[in-house]
Design a protein around this nucleic acid. Sequence first.
DNA 1: TCAACAATTTGTCCAGGACAAAACAAAGGT
DNA 2: ACCTTTGTTTTGTCCTGGACAAATTGTTGA
Lengths: 303, 303
Amino acid sequence: MSVTGLGLLNISAVERETGLAKDTLRVWERRYGFPKPARDEAGERLYTQEDVNRLRLIRRLIDQGWRPGKLLSASHSELQAIVDAERSARVPALLSGETLEAIRRHDVDGLRAVFQRTLLDQGLQGLVTGLIAPLNVDIGEAWMRGELGVPDEHFYTEQVQNFLRGALSSYPRPVRSPRVLLTTLPEEEHALGLIMAEVMLLTEGVQCCSLGPRMPLADIRTSAATVGADIVALSFSAAFPVRQAIAGVRTLRQLLPESVAIWVGGAGARDKLRSETGIQIIRSIDDVVPAVAAWRVANGAAT
Amino acid sequence: MSVTGLGLLNISAVERETGLAKDTLRVWERRYGFPKPARDEAGERLYTQEDVNRLRLIRRLIDQGWRPGKLLSASHSELQAIVDAERSARVPALLSGETLEAIRRHDVDGLRAVFQRTLLDQGLQGLVTGLIAPLNVDIGEAWMRGELGVPDEHFYTEQVQNFLRGALSSYPRPVRSPRVLLTTLPEEEHALGLIMAEVMLLTEGVQCCSLGPRMPLADIRTSAATVGADIVALSFSAAFPVRQAIAGVRTLRQLLPESVAIWVGGAGARDKLRSETGIQIIRSIDDVVPAVAAWRVANGAAT
DNA sequence: TCAACAATTTGTCCAGGACAAAACAAAGGT
DNA sequence: ACCTTTGTTTTGTCCTGGACAAATTGTTGA
């Protein structure tokens, strides 16, 4: 209930800014001795901005497969070494100087110009598969290197959404099958993958109905029924806990009639969901188009 | 960590679906005896879907000013009486049968047609002030009456976003001052008000840079500096805790140079923020346009 | 009518134990 | 070499019940 100023954050604020549950923060402190925040008069934790920065970094590394125990008991330099290892493991690709500059400077027109140029060169699908999808990865990388901050990522996300949603609404509404319902499970709040998927589908002449993120399973079922969906498409970010994804998808499979396919995409849909029956994994954004074609062949689609 | 199927939800799931903190749910149970969930073998709480529905209703009534103690110790019929009282206190207005039906049926084309028609009749500003803003209220109402569900609201929100962002991106980018940075405080996740504001501003020839919702204060400051903002505009939904809004806005006021104005809008910005110095309240979406005009007069805007 | 103060309501934090789920490691089987 | 099975360690979440500060309401006096 207390509100913290600029310098110090209470445990709620840290939960909000890092996505780490209060219980997790407390148990990390108990077990690993980090973070070890100061206390106010009432004995309540006061985290520094530096704590938050480090926690954010640790969170990302955990999402990439590192073990918490290792990261939390690592010294400053050990952590830096891990970051460096991650950095060299990847190939920084499309984040050209111009684009990076536009994001850094929050230059709306500059970033739009990059999108617009790519759109004209490569078309809408090319924009998504050739520029935006790789950019998303690069930007995560750049964040890790400290070249971009939180507001820069927000700005980028917002601009991509604006641009793609703009393109969506000027695209003619298709009438061919299949009919796809797009959403995410309740634990997943990232909407960008959903919008990218919607672009790829719409340009293939698929009828899309997006509910946005965070949809309870029971509501997915009723929605799928009301729109008469042939396919329910779910998006998972890399941070999504695998086990929960499996359980969620399995439950959903039971809730939906067999005639409705379930497609699963996004960085979090890669490995472990593979063996689930009645679920189709879309390994990358490039695979959306062939998947649609395959569906149409299998279902003798006309209309 | 456990994953619950369709029937019963654990406390994390209830927190997610109702927005009520785990601690709050537990203390309500302790004090008022509601909700009183069953327990699994391990003694962990298992809430029913009905519990969740009732909690969602109670949350909305609390946001409208009712006291928790009253609502939580109310019987089923007493609660219904309160809902009825709320209902009759308002005038259901624009939610015509056609629009309501389109939302209920998740009819993308139908809802777009309503927007499109209004756009042609009344223009972009008229669409926002005359249709979408009142619709938002009506839909909250309809939800309380049980005429709309969670997925219906999601669907509506998503479609409005698509339509408005589409309009935004086809609108010519202005070059006049002022320059406005749009965002919300970290605790506020509703983005719709932000987009509506952006539409109103852009159509007035204002240069907008939206960061989307949930922006830490320190990052607002740096962003405002990098874009050279004249105005920082914040949106608050009705659910936003008043005290926190005041504290947040006050802190932000200290962080920003005096030359940067702070504008505050949304249903949560009404009453109590009034007396803060150096803050301008935008009482309704209709007041955006005059506010811009006033700013330009006061600042002798050219360019 | 307004301000100051007291009483009540209400949300959040804490500690530290418990335990289930996930990740990892080792062993055995095809 | 690859897949199961089983055991071990790590890790996140839930629990209780106490405490207390923030928010609201009620009361009193100017």
